[in-house]
């Protein structure tokens, strides 16, 4: 033992270089992937727009809604649960707001408030049923997904006589709500959703790594029994995660219904997989206990770039889903590999 060192730092810790530290981050693989995909599309781009501000406004517009819900889904997955009803709930909340405004005659802000409470209720039911029945959340939320999908279609037809709700722009308070949730800024037409997405990324990262609730999320996903033995309120933590996920879907529903001034009954269906892909590409462990919010955002960004980059490069955009499938597989493979390496290869 040397006594020369006066710093409290333990001399046995190899001075982990910046690279090793970066490698240990769960989102590192996604970060590299995002750079590679940016370079790929920037170089094959035929419009000259992909890397310009206008192009960036385009792909961040696609990425923002995926990122907003993807972050919440990532937190839920870190907590060891799934939510397959998050996509359809985007449609449900949008339709609900549309009907409250056009058929009930409420103002837009009251409708938004009711939709948020409704979504929180769906999230609570998801969580409560998962906790009480001890069934896998995959099954419980798959059931919620189909219940809502049917209800969206049937209820919309029953109330409006068609498969869409229109005319939300006539509601009282529409302008102020649109300014907050669905306006544009800058000459290139950046969507306000981009700001929401960035702010939510920052808040979620802080919550996850620097608050007690974040600590509990990792704990309940890592080992629920051990967490319970240590005094963590496992059930409350999980129910909150379901509620947060549903609220994030509602936020995106609000954005869509204000932007499109209406809603299709089938809106959002299938999106739940994009959220899960964003979380998984971003380094969230599917078995729970590890992951990051920034990772989910990078995952969403990759999807946004693919959606704009493929047509800009004059590729057949029918292949977009195939491209995303390959990205998902590759990213999870690389994440798993890096994860093992960075932990020093022990166990």
């Amino acid at each position: 033992m040397t006594t020369v060192s006066t710093t409290p730092k333990d001399e046995r810790v190899k001075n982990a270089g910046l690279l090793v530290k970066a490698l240990r981050r769960p989102e590192f693989g996604a970060f590299l992937g995002a750079i590679a995909i940016f370079i790929l599309f920037a170089s094959t781009d035929t419009t000259g727009n992909f890397a310009a501000l206008g192009g960036i406004a385009g792909w961040t517009d696609i990425a923002a809604p995926i990122g907003i819900v993807g972050i919440a889904v990532a937190l839920l997955m870190i907590g060891g649960e799934f939510d397959l009803s998050s996509g359809v709930l985007v449609g449900t909340t949008g339709l609900l707001i549309g009907m409250l405004v056009t058929n009930v005659g409420l103002d837009i802000w009251s409708s938004i408030a009711i939709a948020l409470v409704f979504a929180a209720g769906i999230g609570f039911i998801n969580g409560y049923v998962v906790i009480k029945t001890k069934l896998p959340s995959f099954i419980v939320t798959l059931a919620t997904f189909f219940v809502l999908k049917g209800a969206n279609m049937a209820f919309t037809k029953f109330v409006t006589g068609s498969v869409r709700v229109t005319g939300t722009e006539k509601a009282v308070g529409f302008d102020s709500a649109q300014a907050l949730f669905a306006s544009k800024f800058g000459a290139e037409g950046f969507q306000i959703s981009l700001v929401w997405w960035l702010v939510i990324t920052l808040i979620a990262t802080f919550v996850l790594t620097r608050t007690r609730f974040g600590n509990w999320i990792f704990a309940v996903g890592g080992d629920a029994n051990a967490a319970r033995n240590a005094g963590v309120p496992v059930e409350k933590t999980k129910i909150w995660l379901f509620v947060i996920t549903s609220l994030s879907a509602a936020l995106v529903g609000i954005m869509f219904v204000l932007r499109l001034k209406g809603m299709q009954a089938g809106q959002g269906v299938g999106q739940e997989f994009y959220y899960i892909i964003a979380a998984a590409v971003g380094g969230t462990l599917l078995t729970g206990g590890a992951g990051s919010a920034i990772g989910a955002s990078i995952g969403a960004l990759i999807m946004g770039m693919a959606y704009i980059g493929i047509p800009f490069s004059r590729w057949d955009s029918d292949w977009t889903a195939t491209f995303l499938g390959i990205i998902l597989f590759t990213a999870v493979m690389i994440n798993t590999y890096i994860g093992r390496k960075a932990k020093g290869g022990k166990k």
């Binding site: 600590n215 990792f218 704990a219 890592g222 080992d223 240590a230 206990g289």
Partner: peptide, 13 residues
């Protein structure tokens, strides 16, 4: 919790 750091485990709860 295996994946959590030593200090997070120490203070969990």
């Amino acid at each position: 919790i295996p994946l959590m750091s030593v200090w997070r485990n120490f203070f969990l709860g």
